[in-house]
Each structure stands twice: as C-alpha cells, then as structure tokens.
Amino acid sequence: MKLEQVIKALKEYDGEPVKIMEVCGTHTKSIFQSGIRTIISPKIQLISGPGCPVCVTSPAYIDHLTDLSLKEKYCVLTFGDMMKVKGTKLSLTEAKAMGAQVKVLYSPLAAIAEAERNLDTQYVFAAVGFETTTPIYALLLDEIRKRKIKNLKLATSIKTILPALSFICENETSIDAFLSPGHVSVITGSKIYKGLASTYHKPFVVAGFEGEHILAAIYEIMSQLKGKRYEVRNLYSNAVTEEGNQKAERLINQYFEEANGIWRGIGMIEQSALKLKEEYKEYDAGSREEEIIEELPKGCRCADVILGRIQPVECPLFQKVCTPLHAVGPCMVSAEGACGIWYQNS
C-alpha cells in the first residue's frame, strides 16, 4: 500500500474514537516532528506512555545521588538529562552549584578513563534507563572488573517496560492499542508483548522512528481493531526480531536480577526493576536504597500523563507554571518527557 493511501485512510477515519499509546518518548518526539497529529483524523488520539526513564525515576534515587555528590571525594557521573530532575530536596544541578562534584558523560564507558585519572575520587555512575541502556552498563561492569577499578560504582535505577505496560493494561482500560517501543524491542524482541496482546485484547505494533514508519503502525493498529484482531506485529524488522538480542540479554542477566521498582508518581510495580546481583555488590553504590516517597509537587499530574490518563495540555500547571525552564514535574524536564515534547512542539 502506498503512503498516500495510508495517510488518506487515517485522515478520513470516522469510526469510534480510538486511543493509541506510544510507549516511547522518541516516538512522541517523532510524532510531533513529522506533524502526524495534523494529518490524521482527530478520532485517532495518540497518547504518550511511560517510556522516558528520567520521568519515572524516583525522587528517593535522586536524593541518593545528590547526597553522594555532596560527600567529600565523591563524584557523580551522569547523562545530561538527569541533571535538572529534582529529588525531594535538590537536583544534581543545584547540588553542583553548592559545590558537589557532578560530571555529565555521553557514554558510560567514558567513566573508566575518569576513574583511572583520579584514583583518590570515588566515582558513582548514575545508571538510569530501560532495557536499552542496561547492556552498556553490563559492559561497563565488565570493564571495571577487567581493569580492577576500585573507585567506580553504579547507582542503578533501571526499569523494565513490560511490567509497566501490564500495569497500564490492568488499570487503564481506555487505551485501545500500543505503539510498542522501538529501541527496547531491539533488546527484548517483539515476543514479550504476546501475552498482553492476547490477555487484554490490544494490538501491539512495533515501529521504527521515521514518520512513515509510525503512520504504517497506526494503520496496522486501525486495521486490527477494525477486524477485531489483537496481535503483536513487528514493522521494524530491520532492527527488531521476535527473539531480541540474546547476547545483550545474556549480558544483562549476568549482572542484574529482577526486583520491585519504584516509578515516580505511580509507586511500586512488582518485578519492574533490574538491580545488581548480590555477587556484584562491591560495584553497587546503594541501588537498593530506593523507597516510596509521596513525591509529585502539588498540582503536578505527571503520573496521569505517564499512565495515559491525560494529555500534557490537560494538566493545570502545563505552560502556566510548568515550562522547560521552570519545570515542576519530571515529564517537563527531560528531552524525552511527554510534557517537554508537547511544550516545544505544540
């Protein structure tokens, strides 16, 4: 089928309103960048999901990082996105302004050179992310062990996407279908969505990140819903297989094990986190210290945004008091956060 025909069909759709959740922040971004909302029927609603790791990181974890960064001879290494997210007291940016040692890295493996250069500093890498980044953390651990580096540890806040999707299917019945995350699926394979598709009767379509890919996935979802089919379909087959990247999975399983995870604004979701195994605890800078804190600032509805209950514009703070320069909630802080993307693009 030609792209023009797909666009025409999606533009002219006039059936029951449909809600599709795009799980991944990169999809949200691409939907805006290619102007997809402006060319499809308003009856097809695209809702952002929980796929921004920074947005779902618990404040207790941020507190842990800022506390460590303020300790003498400690330095926290992090991806740039984490700098502005507030814990209950401070963000890493604010801690840095108070004299804490915090350094932004582009790649976890750059932490090795940093640690080897300054042997009397204890480095802590803020290992945040989903299945996508976890294999790189495993490689970092490989390297730390190989080089016998003693002054570099990981503080992990790693989540897995499937339990969160399961939580949404169980609790948010208004979502009709899912645009499955592209990057995560590269690692996990498209197989992981099968159980959810058949149990909850929802199509799960894996898509790439170009506008055309997303349109094709929406079209596939609409066709499935029309034919009352609820299947997993992989439209990103040049990167995603059914089985996933088994080498990466082996690496993850070597170092990490499942544990209960704390999602900001949602609370605890069972077996939704990956933590360092007991046998590697010497590389663990306190990852097990996560706890639930009643955390979102007053009025902030990031939790409802993450769960697809509302669109960012429906939050009373959006654009009024909550902006990228003065972010109230985590979804406005991150480049992959739904509110930040909506603010910049609509």
Binding site: Q33, S34, G211, T323, N345
Partner: peptide, 21 residues
C-alpha cells in the same frame, strides 16, 4: 512552523535550556 515531509505541520520553538554542553 514547518511543513513536514508527510505534509503535516510542526511548530518550531526556540531552544530551551542547555541540553548539551
């Protein structure tokens, strides 16, 4: 505003914050 390749429309805002060093 930008007319996208898919003939959609996208709002182009200024750059917020630093993002990168």
């Amino acid at each position: 505003r930008m007319k996208t390749k898919l003939m959609g429309s996208r709002t182009i805002d200024v750059l917020y914050g630093e993002g990168l060093p």
